[in-house]
Write a protein that binds this DNA or RNA. Structure first.
Lengths: 114, 114
DNA sequence: TTTATAGTACACCATATGGTAAACAATGAA
DNA sequence: TTCATTGTTTACCATATGGTGTACTATAAA
């Protein structure tokens, strides 16, 4: 089904598909940092950083607070939960099948809608 | 760090970032299917299906067995585990911080390398 | 007020992505 | 052997993506 949840998964997985953005999320998991601090480890222009931040923000994984001319970025882990749900569902589902517990299919409501 | 594991995460998350491929994985989680069966629900050409399958195969999420002219596709859930690890690490990490258990940082070895 | 700093916007570029159409290869069936 | 079927390859297209450089806005500091 192509619904909002699917679109959200697309945004989240797309955001996670870039190593720079994954590294940014790592830093954000440690503490809230400014644009300048966040961009420091990356050998790219401010424009490129701005773009990555937009992708992260658009996926919901990052939130921003502006104080004067400083933009503070922080992780918003909620969307990660959606991604985790999706991934672990298929992972566990398949594992059960490998274990020969095909009844799992009927027992568990098929939560994931796509 | 831009290592093999990072590249693998990039391939996995990229593969998962497309709704058609997620739908394909859903079908594959239920049973092994042929190319024709797998492509049946999708309104696109065989060429497009071929491309999607290549992406899935390249990420390691799908395996193929050829029998005559029929290609049988099946889910390989192992890479999903890597993705799940990555996602749940940051998710749980952050949750602990929200719970005020900052000691989590020092207690747990920081498994994820990027 | 002038100057420096933090970050954005815009135009541009090369490559990747998701799709098509048409031709092809390989196998199976008549 | 001829024909149908399964899937791939290739060329092509439009748009997205990840990067650059330059100009800009907004705030802070001299």
């Amino acid at each position: 089904m192509v619904n909002n949840e699917s679109q959200q998964l697309t945004l989240i997985f797309s955001a996670l598909s870039d190593p720079t953005r994954r590294a940014m999320l790592k830093r954000l998991s440690e503490k809230e940092v400014s644009f300048a601090e966040l961009s420091e480890p990356f050998a790219m222009t401010k424009s490129a950083i701005t773009k990555h931040l937009k992708v992260l923000e658009n996926s919901g994984l990052m939130r921003r607070t502006i104080d004067g001319r400083t933009h503070y970025c922080r992780l918003n882990p909620a969307p990660l939960e959606k991604a985790a749900e999706w991934v672990t569902f298929y992972q566990k589902f398949w594992q059960k099948k490998l274990d020969g517990l095909d009844a799992f299919l009927n027992e568990s409501t098929h939560k994931s809608s796509e």
